[in-house]
Amino acid sequence: MFATKDILSVWRKFDHFPMETLTKAWYFQKNSGKKQREVAQMKEHREQYGITGNCFDLALWLLHEFEKEGIEAYPIGHDMGTEDAHVAVIAKNEEGHRYYCDLGDQWLNPVLVDADSEDYTEERLKGLFPAAEIQVQSAGDLFTVLYHRPNGKTSKQVFNLTPVKMDDFWLAAEICQNAIHKSPLLECRIPYKNETAHWEFYDWQSFLSTTEGLFNDPEAESIEQWCVRIHQKTGYDTNFLYEALNIYKKM
């Protein structure tokens, strides 16, 4: 179920890339033209401020890196053209088997979604998603993901594997980058004991999800305290964080 070495070699480049909307709000204020950044500009911003972006940014960047390595890949998504859009990437190995690659939801590894592959399984698996066991059920171009949490709860998502045309993808990306929600969001993968856990900052609260359960952080009393905390988790430039968080605070 885990991806082949060629796909993983590209995926591993993004291990320390958070998914966040801070960059979206910051760039929205900075730029009067198109809001969806090109990959070259994302790389410049990463070099300057340590920042990444939201699911559209990460999918575009991942597609770019797959193309550089000669790996066939394409975008997929749901609710395209709305504020609720979510996108990911399908990459194919040399045999043509498809792997679901989702940096937006901070997966730990891509997962095989072709039921006709000899490596496919519908058993519960560890090591694919932070603080949860994953179970995949595929049927043609639809596949279902079951997230089994440590507290016994199970959630479900259904994805369509049909490729999204790049023109449609860029259009949906532009719509998404123009929609600034009032609550900032940042998710990242961080080491915790013998696992990779999931840290989330949302609506001025933060918490860590682990296989041992969920741990809430103490409340931060100021923008400055949030800047320090987020910087410690991500390495993001503190001046950038102060500017981006103040944009949300004024909303």
Rank of each mutant, 00 (worst) to 15 (best):
G77W: 12
Q157H: 09
A91F: 06
V145A: 11
I180V: 10
P130A: 07
G77L: 09
N109V: 06
D105V: 04
T144L: 13
V136Y: 03
A139W: 14
G104L: 00
E122S: 15
Q137T: 09
E69P: 00
N151C: 01
G104P: 02
T121L: 10
E95P: 00
W107E: 12
E69S: 11
V136F: 07
K182L: 15
A172G: 06
C176K: 15
V164H: 03
G70W: 02
N151I: 06
W170C: 08
P110Y: 06
K92N: 08
K126Y: 15
V111P: 03
E65K: 14
P163W: 08
L63Y: 04
T144G: 03
E123Q: 13
S117T: 03
A173W: 05
V145F: 04
K126F: 13
A88M: 11
L62Y: 05
W107S: 09
F129Q: 07
F159L: 12
P163M: 08
G77A: 02
E72Y: 14
Y74D: 08
G104M: 03
D84T: 07
A73E: 01
D119E: 13
E118G: 00
D102S: 06
A88R: 10
E95T: 09
V89L: 13
N151M: 05
Y100D: 02
Q157T: 15
E67N: 11
K126W: 14
Y100I: 06
W170T: 05
A139L: 10
L103D: 01
D84A: 10
T82G: 07
T162M: 08
E94Q: 10
S155A: 06
N93W: 12
A91Q: 03
R149G: 00
V87W: 04
E95F: 07
V136R: 02
S155N: 07
Y100A: 04
E118P: 08
G140S: 08
M80D: 02
P75D: 01
I175R: 14
H86R: 05
A88W: 09
K156S: 07
P163F: 03
E69K: 09
F169C: 08
T121W: 05
V111C: 15
G152N: 02
L63T: 00
L161A: 11
D141I: 13
F159G: 00
A139R: 10
N151D: 14
L103M: 05
Q157I: 12
I134Y: 00
T144E: 15
E69M: 06
